[in-house]
Amino acid sequence: MGRVEMLRIHFTGEDLARIRFATEPDPMWEMLLSLRRLRGRDAGVLLGPWLRESLPRVPAATAMLTALVPPVGYAVDFLTPAVGGGLDAQVDALRSTPSHRVLEDLREFARQNATRRLPPWSRDLVEGGPAGIGRLADAAHEYVDAVLGPFWERIRAQVNRDRSRRSVVLAGGGWDAVLSTLHPSVRWEYPVLRIDCRIDLDLHLAGRGLLLQPSFFRRCAPTLLGDPTLPPILVCPIEHDVNWATPEVNPAEGRALAALIGPTRATLLCALADGVATTGQLARRAGTTAPNASRHITALREAALVASQRHRNATLHSVTELGLALLEGGNPRIPA
C-alpha cells in the first residue's frame, strides 16, 4: 500500500481557545469551489437547480478564473484573501495583492499542476501592475454577481443553519465534539486534527487559532489555503437541506405575520429561522439600528419566541419551538 495522504493540524491549548466560527459564507471561497462544480457538471441532484440556472449566466471573463482553478488540487491562494467585510472588501484585497505574492502562488501552481500550462496572460498578473491583477479581480466580481448573486440569500441561509447546528454541538460537548463531527474524513485526537485528503502536510497553528469556514459548495473533505504561513482557515462542507432551492416566501402570509407581531419583529423572527445570530447581524438584516433591534428582540424573548445566551463577548439569539410554530403558521421566511 502507498502512503496515505493526510493533513495534520496541530493545536496548542491556546489554539483551542481561539477556534471560532465564520459568521457568513465567504464569497471568494464559494466562487472558487462553485467553479469546480460548474466545470465538472457534477452538481448532482442537490446542486442541480443552481447548475441549470447558472450555466447561461457565466460571464466570458470567467475563463481567467478557471485557468487558475483546476478541477482538483491546488488553486492559487491569492484568489481567496483572508479578509472580512464581504465581496467588495475581498475583491479590493485581491486587486491589491503584492506582485511577490502572485509570483509565489503561480510558481506553486506550476509545481503542483505540472500537466497544466498557465496561459500567457498570467505574466501580466505579475508584470502588468495594478491593471493586470485588476482584470482578474473584475472577473471574480462579475462571476460572483452573475452566478452566485441570484442564489446568495439561499446560500447564506444554508450556511447559517449549519452554523446553528454546530453551535448546538459546541454547547453540548465543547470543541472536542465540534472537531470530531466536522466530516467523516476527519479524526480528532488532541492535539492533532487529521484529515484524509489529497495533500500530505503538517500545519502547526502555533497560537494563531483556527477559523472554521462553512462552505455551501464544498462537497468533500475540509480544505485550507496551501501556504501554511497564511491565516489558518479550515473550509468545511455543510449539511444541506435537500429542498434548499425551493422558494419559501408567501407574500400574503408574510403580511399576516407582520400584522400580528409588527414588521420589524416579523423580519427579525424570520431571520432567526435561518440560524443563530447576534444582535448586530439581526439589525443589519432588518435594516434598523442595533438598539432598536435589541428592543424588539427583548419583546420577542418575553413572548417566548426567541431565546438568547451569552457566548464570549456576544449575545447569540435563536428561535424557540414556539417561534418556529408561529413561522410555520405564518411566513417561513421574510426577506430583510
Rank of each mutant, 00 (worst) to 15 (best):
P263S: 00
I238Y: 10
V235T: 04
P228W: 00
L260G: 04
E239K: 13
R285V: 06
A273G: 15
S215T: 06
L272R: 09
S308E: 13
L268M: 09
I297F: 01
V276F: 09
P237E: 06
A266M: 00
C270I: 02
L300D: 01
V249M: 13
A290G: 06
L211T: 15
R255F: 03
Q309I: 07
R265W: 01
N243G: 14
A259W: 03
A307F: 10
L210Q: 01
G209Q: 07
N313K: 14
T223Q: 00
R219P: 03
Q213A: 11
L272V: 09
F216Y: 01
D227F: 01
P231C: 06
A293P: 15
Q281R: 12
R312M: 07
R219N: 13
L305R: 08
A307T: 14
D241T: 14
D274H: 10
R255S: 07
A290D: 14
T320K: 06
N292D: 07
R218T: 10
R219Q: 14
L316Q: 07
C270F: 02
A259C: 05
S294A: 15
S294T: 15
E302L: 15
T298Q: 15
S318Q: 11
A290Y: 04
T298D: 13
S294N: 13
T264D: 01
N243L: 14
N292M: 11
A303N: 08
H317L: 08
A258N: 00
F217D: 11
R284E: 14
C270Y: 02
H311Q: 12
S318W: 09
Q281T: 08
G226K: 00
L269Q: 03
I261H: 02
N250D: 15
G209A: 13
Q213G: 07
A304K: 13
E302A: 11
F216P: 05
A256P: 01
A290S: 14
L268C: 08
A307K: 10
V235Y: 00
V319Q: 03
A252R: 13
H296N: 15
I297E: 01
L272T: 02
V276Y: 09
R255E: 10
T289F: 11
H311I: 07
Q213K: 10
V306W: 12
R285C: 08
H311S: 11
A271I: 06
N313Y: 04
G254N: 05
N250W: 07
